[in-house]
Design a protein around this nucleic acid. Structure first.
Lengths: 333, 333
DNA sequence: AGCCCTTGTCGAAGCGCTTCGAAAGACGAG
DNA sequence: CTCGTCTTTCGAAGCGCTTCGACAAGGGCT
């Protein structure tokens, strides 16, 4: 394995010159630069990451903390993770994968050992216990999700409140007056996941504004839970003609239950989902939906990080986009 | 940030002694050890990862290469990734997330810059182009999946051939004589994904042995594709009474199509799936299935790596486990 | 011609840790 | 009492890179 010293010797220059060719931090004459580059090529030189990290006290690594919960829709998480990774590469960074198994201590560990020089946290709850730790160790971080006290922290998220509102508006615009919001599992609200809470707020506020009656029903991902939830909704509020679904895993069982109970979508029941486009297009009929811009969120998170230092106004709320597909229609009278 | 030298000074010993306390590579008297540990505690000392990597030429990082394809079932990938990460932590290692976006060059980069000192590759195809690179740079690696030429490489996988066979056996045992195997998307076979190919082989071989007629139909993840596939199967082979499904995303649309066309599961049609237990238990009826042991695969991969050096016999094929649930029943005559 | 500024290059001093050889004692055997 | 053997600790030499101050050379001014 060739070292920087080998390159320097081969090119007949000082080690520092090679370093400057590599980093561009000082100007180097074209002639020397070419000579150095040639030697690098020839010796197949690659800088040693550890040595770099030590000398420059920058690791070029971003730590990504992913949730290991079973009750969150995994493909979205994965898509964010992939977007983070590919974007980080574009900035010459690599991504370290962290789970919450270690708890907030994992964050401390990575920060104080200088394994990573920045972090991205996913699935941030309103009163997330990782946030004090983040502040304590003082590592640069971007949150995917918006906690209650976000002061001084950079955050990226879909504007879930607006997204919820958008769903209600769409249904209201089609004449629906009784709507049910099938949300995430109870546990998700209990732990105060920001996105779930905000969506609910948005739905409620918009419903009030539009004169739509809305009931909210948390729902788990099993067929039984979905069946139970929809049955209960129809019993309690037989006049319900619109459904907003946030928990992606509920969609297949939900559609299946509607079908078996003889309810046509969209003729008898309009359905609008908050889910990735891919999911909305796999069903029959295709679902009118507000997409979860997973890739954008991952990309933004990294870009914010790269634009450091933060100026204190780092809150990126991505506007919701509603795509009309085949699952919503005017309310029948 | 305290350094090792600070600790040494504080404890009144040489730096090397502190190092030996930390690594345990040489014996240290109980008295000094305690003194050093006390200083470490007091100064809140944490070793600098980069410095360590440089001095010891070991980074304590495992690189995990995840596929970024849309046509593979994501939750399984995620579960493997999580299992790899948590297991790696148990061995004091961290995990670097790599996508295939960089292609095989990404492997070289990570290896030659000494970013990671071992790798785990997911979604390995029979003639995977990353394998020559692996051999070339000579980094220790474990493959999740088994390529055609695995000589000298450690591999972990579910024994998909046995799994496929197990499905056929189960159906054959219930008296089914005409069975359809709904597989992964065409593209998955075209790129020669090992697991898809092996499953098919296992299904075919077992079918021959059991005197069962099997047709194989690749199938994409959309509702239309599923509907088309099942319709075609029933037209071509009206006597089909058993279905084996490998593509998890096809399950919801498949069940929905069967229901709408008036076919009861399991009375009219037995269904056995190759999928994570979680998926099998979300449907109604619950699916008889061979589980994908994602967590075991991830854990094994790391454990193999930690047991290095490899002795040349590193092929872990996890035995399939079939769980009977409500979706299979004796063939009606 | 003399001065200053810019540009390009060098050397040296670390960054914080590991590891190896050797020194210093302690101790039992002869 | 001496010798050899352990055990415990130390010091020094790196690991491969970055960065800073210094210096030499060249140019444009006055």
């Amino acid at each position: 394995m060739a070292t920087l010293a080998d390159v320097a010797r081969h090119a007949g220059v000082a080690a520092s010159t090679v370093s400057y060719v590599l980093s561009g931090k000082r100007s180097v004459s074209t002639a020397t630069r070419r000579r150095v580059e040639h030697s690098i090529e020839l010796l197949n030189y690659h800088p040693h990451a550890g040595a770099r990290a030590l000398a420059s006290s920058r690791s070029s690594i971003i730590a990504l903390v992913v949730p290991l919960r079973g009750d969150l829709y995994v493909p979205v998480m994965m898509e964010i993770a992939i977007a983070v990774t590919t974007t980080a590469r574009r900035f010459g960074h690599d991504v370290l994968l962290l789970t919450n198994e270690e708890g907030p201590e994992g964050i401390r560990r990575v920060a104080v050992t200088a394994r990573a020089d920045a972090m991205i946290l996913m699935d941030v709850s309103m009163d997330d216990d990782r946030i004090p730790m983040l502040r304590d160790v003082g590592i640069d971080a971007v949150l995917i999700g918006v906690p209650a006290n976000a002061r001084g922290l950079a955050c990226v998220d879909l504007d879930f409140a607006a997204a919820g509102a958008r769903c209600v508006e769409h249904l209201a615009g089609l004449g629906h007056r009784e709507v049910a919001f099938i949300g995430e599992a109870e546990a998700v609200y209990r732990r105060r996941s920001g996105f779930a809470e905000r969506t609910l707020d948005g739905v409620k506020a918009s419903a009030v504004a539009r004169g739509v009656r809305v009931v909210h029903r948390p729902c788990q991902a099993s067929h039984e839970a979905a069946a139970g939830t929809i049955t209960r909704i129809l019993e309690d509020r037989p006049g319900t003609t619109g459904l907003i679904v946030q928990n992606e895993s509920v969609i297949p069982p939900l559609l299946s239950v509607l079908r078996t109970t003889g309810r046509m979508v969209p003729e008898d029941m309009s359905v609008v989902a908050l889910c990735p486009d891919q999911v909305a297009e796999q069903t029959s009929p295709r679902l009118t939906s507000v997409r979860i811009p997973a890739e954008d969120m991952g990309r933004w998170a990294v870009e914010l990080l790269m634009r450091r230092p933060f100026d204190g106004h780092e809150l990126v709320l991505l506007p919701p986009e509603l795509t009309v597909r085949g699952s919503t229609a005017p309310a029948s009278r």
